[in-house]
Amino acid sequence: MKIPHYLPIVLLAGLTLASCADDKSSNATKLQIRLTDAPGDFQKVLLDVRQIEVHLKDEQSADGWELLPFTPQTLNVLDYVNGRSALLVDTDFEPGDLKEIRLVLGPNSTVTTRDGQIYELKTPSGQTSGVKLKLDNATLRERETFQLLLDFDVAKSIVQRGNWRPGVDKKERFLLKPVIRVIAQDIAGGLRGTVTPSASLPQILAIRASITPADTFSTSADASGGYQLSSLPSGVYRVEFFPTTTAPTGQPTYKNVVRTDITVTNNQVTELGQTKLD
């Protein structure tokens, strides 16, 4: 749930990947972790995320966890619906297999109901051992971008206590039992082309409508009219062009243009050629 203006994601904070930076070669892959959300019937859902780790060994092994560079923050997951997502981690990483991801939650998660009441959210496991999500077929390859999309289902994740009644302490109404779908994918496709007039300087959106929720990626054309979007998941896209300038007096007005049924294939760059915006 783009994740982007969708976790299915202190004492250790100093032990980041920086300590391993000198060991990483130019063959490192790029690891991204994003959060998106399936909507729920609330005004706001604040998730207090303290730490994100990945497990490099089988889940039975207690060691092999590696802390990722992530700034602890409280996220309103309902900001990341309908194609928007939050970028939580974007780092170089050694190629290899990932077995699990773990999200450690803090004590400040809350939910605001439709009537404006704020309630605490408690996740005992999330605040101790962390919320662990198993990864299937998560293989990071050299010089590629790999993305883990955590699709958090609010409606299924927030559970009202069966014995709650109005007037009871607000802290006791809801429990957070995260239901998170993890989408793991290599991202090595791309789109490129040119626009005319180049003076229109359009913003360009590539929207992967072949999935739900849709993914949206953006860029801008340069002064020569050229543009390229890299690290796109394979799929069928709609590409939208939005001029950011006004045509000079006496010249045709710049217009928004939409191109549909654009196919992106992994490990290839799709050529869009020239797109006229006048």
Score class of each variant (00 low, 15 high):
Gln268Val: 13
Glu59Gly: 12
Pro4Ile: 14
Asp278Ile: 01
Pro72Gly: 04
Asn27Trp: 07
Ala247Met: 03
Leu205Asn: 04
Asp79Leu: 08
Arg141Gly: 06
Leu272Asn: 06
Gly162Val: 14
Ala155Phe: 09
Thr112Gln: 10
Pro178Met: 02
Thr139Gln: 13
Val236Tyr: 09
Val89Ser: 03
Gln117Ser: 14
Pro233His: 06
Leu47Ser: 01
Ile262Gly: 10
Gly96Cys: 00
Leu46Val: 05
Val77Cys: 12
Gln147Ala: 04
Thr194Asn: 15
Val89Gln: 01
Gly14Phe: 09
Thr128Asn: 14
Val179Ala: 08
Thr16Trp: 05
Asp41Glu: 12
Glu94Phe: 02
Ser200Ala: 10
Ser19Arg: 13
Ala199His: 10
Thr249Ala: 15
Lys44Phe: 01
Val257Leu: 09
Arg34Gln: 15
Val111Phe: 04
Ala206Asn: 08
Ile211Gly: 03
Gly126Lys: 04
Thr29Glu: 05
Val239Cys: 11
Leu232Arg: 07
Thr36Val: 11
Ala13His: 11
Gly225Leu: 10
Thr270Met: 02
Asp37Thr: 15
Gly167Arg: 02
Ala38Glu: 10
Ile52Tyr: 02
Trp164Thr: 04
Glu144Met: 10
Ala38Leu: 15
Pro69Gly: 02
Pro69Ile: 04
Leu67Pro: 05
Lys24Cys: 05
Thr275Pro: 03
Arg208Phe: 10
Ile101Cys: 02
Ser26Leu: 10
Asp90Cys: 03
Glu66Ser: 05
Ala62Thr: 14
Ile207Tyr: 06
Glu172Pro: 04
Arg165Ala: 14
Asn137Ser: 15
Lys177Trp: 05
Leu56Thr: 14
Ala18Arg: 08
Ser157His: 05
Pro252Gln: 02
Gln274Cys: 03
Gln60Trp: 14
Ser198Glu: 12
Tyr80Gln: 00
Pro202Glu: 07
Arg114Cys: 05
Pro95Gly: 09
Val111Ser: 07
Arg114Asp: 08
Thr110Asp: 04
Lys99Val: 09
Thr29Trp: 08
Pro166His: 01
Gly106Trp: 05
Arg102Val: 03
Ile262Pro: 11
Ala188Thr: 13
Gln32Leu: 13
Tyr119Pro: 03
Ala21Glu: 09
Phe93Arg: 00
Glu94Leu: 06
Thr216Cys: 12
Gly40Asn: 04
Lys24Tyr: 04
Val269Glu: 08
Phe146Asp: 01
Asp278Trp: 07
Glu66Tyr: 06
Lys30Ser: 11
Thr245Asn: 12
Leu140Arg: 09
Thr249Leu: 13
